[in-house]
């Protein structure tokens, strides 16, 4: 027994080293698997505080660029206002007042909240964006994030009380379901961890007619993203003969180098959709097991 204590005391530094290594690796593995790190809530609040201070200074530098983007986006929204559309005076019809629209059974499914980007990188293989809005301000996991000019940026993966972490499109684990604007074919967009200006579009069969410069939008079958937001444009196409699918390069529409303001979009029916999805799976399993 005494020898054991002597042994431990002799190699105390080495054991401390081993323990710290194990702790670090355990942190790494648990974070990569669940996007839940130990002490993340506290650490997120701390890094959030410092990032916010730094961001106050940094915002001034790209204020002009941001202003231009917001103005452009506002302009596109202005064009959608119902008072832009009128009927010719030839008929006997009365112009509908704006606001009488939603009586026809339409309802709101997506809800948008503004947020400020306080930390963002593009040089890692796993890039995260920190925004200054957390669970206290209504942010939940899996909400979609759109840039100030209306292009797809990423998905919320983790929230603390006042800050959230967003998994950027520039993350090797990110997959977004998209469709081509022209033909409507579905595919998925991923990132290979190399050039932050380009994403990869997969699962588009070679029968589809694709031109360089075609627009890629978020698809209507995604649970996280509202349909019709632009992801990017196709900049390079190759044919993979073994699978009969295209290997497409997509130039990102959002500028990840100077993100400043973003919109966080909530799908209010996500829970119900997922529930239905899981229930269907279970039901099918039961049918398989049961007598025919």
């Amino acid at each position: 027994m005494r020898n054991i204590f002597l042994f431990i005391r002799r190699y105390f530094t080495f054991f401390t080293f081993l323990i710290l290594q194990v702790v670090a690796l355990w942190f790494m593995i648990s974070y990569n698997r669940f996007h839940r790190a130990k002490f993340l809530g506290m650490a997120n609040e701390m890094t959030g505080f410092f990032n916010k201070q730094y961001n106050k200074v940094e915002d001034y530098i790209s204020l002009n660029e941001e202003n231009r983007r917001v103005h452009k986006f506002n302009d596109s929204l202005l064009n959608l206002l119902p008072r832009n559309f009128m009927k010719r005076d030839t008929g006997m019809e009365i112009i509908k007042a704006p606001g009488s629209y939603d009586t026809t059974g339409q309802y709101r499914r997506y809800y948008s909240r503004p947020a400020t980007v306080i930390y963002n990188t593009v040089n890692a293989t796993k890039n995260y964006i920190q925004i200054s809005r957390g669970s206290n301000q209504g942010i939940k996991d899996n909400m979609a994030v759109i840039s100030s000019d209306g292009y797809v940026v990423g998905v919320v993966v983790n929230v603390s009380a006042n800050f959230s972490q967003v998994m950027s499109l520039l993350h090797v684990q990110s997959t977004v379901s998209v469709s081509l604007k022209k033909t409507g074919d579905f595919g998925t967009v991923e990132w290979d961890g190399k050039d932050p200006r380009f994403l990869l579009l997969k699962k588009i069969p070679k029968t589809v007619d694709i031109q360089l410069g075609d627009t890629v939008l978020t698809s209507s079958v995604s649970f996280n993203f509202p349909p019709g937001y632009m992801v990017g444009t196709i900049s390079d196409k190759k044919l993979d003969n073994t699978t009969g699918m295209y290997l497409l390069k997509v130039k990102t529409a959002a500028n990840f180098y100077n993100l400043q303001q973003v919109h966080v979009i909530e799908n209010t029916e996500r829970e119900e959709q997922l529930q239905l999805f899981d229930d269907t799976k279970k039901k099918i399993e039961e049918i398989k097991k049961g007598p025919r």
């Binding site: 080293f17 710290l20 290594q21 702790v23 670090a24 690796l25 355990w26 942190f27 790494m28 593995i29 974070y31 790190a37 130990k38 993340l40 650490a43 997120n44 701390m46 890094t47 990032n51 930390y119 990188t121 890692a124 796993k126 995260y128 972490q165």
Partner: peptide, 17 residues
């Protein structure tokens, strides 16, 4: 640094080494 760059554990392991 890990918590700032969201690569939990990677830098901690290297620095301990």
């Amino acid at each position: 640094l890990d918590y700032f760059s969201m690569q939990i554990g990677v830098h901690a392991a290297a620095c301990t080494l």
